[in-house]
């Protein structure tokens, strides 16, 4: 056992990368849930984004256009969910699960001819001077741009929810759609937009896997990342700031666990892998016990809205 072999700076830097796909997907789902909608189809939207992004990137040779395509692909799939749940009033849980099924099937059909191809590469940013600052440089300033895009989106969502009027409306719709409706807000319009945003972010997260982390198209490339994203939203108790911490924690557990294995620290893998979920449940309990449920889940989460009901 020689813990000195683990370089904490590199550990932090690599867990930032490991967390990026789930961070992207989770921030999108956070907005969706703050609008009062539970979309369990994150995995399906992620993998659709992964293949659409890959196809676009290989066709155009530009990973950036690929990421745009991925966002569009994820959003397009989420539009199905939006139409069903918002206009046809279908149950959100069942529709979300069906969306995952559709996404997985669609992506492997689309990807049939893309197995074994390498995607155009995404260079890491290396800014002279600041990237070379000891400790902070490697942690903060030597990543590929999508790491910063992910953090930027989180920052943007935080500011949007906290300071903008539209953010206020979105939260109102999520907390109590009947009251929001009575105040004249367009509940369904807000929710559809939130769902599309969630789809786009999930698509970006998926494309980060197929274009940066793996980077190749293989069926099942997301391997359950979408479900982890759902957990992170809950862990974060629907706050963008905590979401970043949650994503790093969930992403970091795997990285840490593998690092410990390499220096022969005998840690039962199973306990480490279930720990984040147990912590999430504990968080939920503390939140709902501590403040009488007020700071827990958005009030209208998962309930469908119909103006006449």
């Amino acid at each position: 056992m020689d813990l000195s072999a683990i370089n904490p700076i590199l550990l932090v830097a690599s867990l930032m990368v490991a967390a990026t796909p789930i961070l992207l997907a989770a921030i999108g789902e956070l907005v969706v849930e703050r609008a009062g909608v539970l979309n369990l189809g994150v995995e399906g939207m992620m993998i659709t984004g992964a293949i659409v992004g890959f196809i676009v990137a290989t066709a155009t040779g530009s990973p950036w256009i690929g990421f745009l395509g991925a966002a569009a692909g994820g959003a397009a799939l989420s539009l199905l969910f939006a139409v069903l749940t918002q206009f046809l009033l279908s149950n959100q849980v069942a529709t979300g699960l069906a969306l995952t099924l559709v996404g997985l099937g669609l992506s492997s059909l689309l990807g049939q001819n893309y197995v074994g191809i390498r995607a155009p590469s995404v260079p890491s940013i290396h800014i002279p001077v600041i990237s070379d600052i000891p400790v902070i440089g490697p942690i903060l300033f030597q990543h590929d741009p999508m790491v910063y895009v992910g953090l930027g989106i989180c920052l943007g969502v935080w500011a949007f929810l906290k300071y903008s009027r539209a953010g206020l409306v979105l939260r109102a719709v999520g907390e109590n759609h009947d009251a929001a409706h009575a105040l004249g807000y367009k509940v369904i319009r807000v929710r559809v937009l939130a769902i599309l945003f969630g789809g786009a972010c999930a698509g970006l997260g998926g494309a980060y896997l197929s274009l940066v982390r793996v980077p190749q198209w293989t069926e099942g490339v997301t391997a359950g990342a979408g479900w982890i994203a759902l957990a992170i939203v809950v862990f974060a108790s629907w706050r963008p700031g905590r979401l970043v911490i949650g994503a790093y924690l969930f992403g970091g557990v795997t990285v840490l666990q593998l690092n410990l294995q390499l220096v022969n620290v005998p840690i039962p893998v199973e306990i480490l892998s279930m720990a984040p979920y147990l912590v999430t449940i504990l968080t939920l309990v503390l939140l709902s016990a501590g403040r009488g449920g007020a700071m827990g889940a958005p009030g209208s989460l998962g309930k469908h809205f119909h103006a006449s009901s």
Partner: peptide, 11 residues
């Protein structure tokens, strides 16, 4: 505690 059962059961 009034915890949301959707999320706990999923976790």
């Amino acid at each position: 505690f009034g915890t949301n059962e959707i999320l706990v059961s999923l976790m």
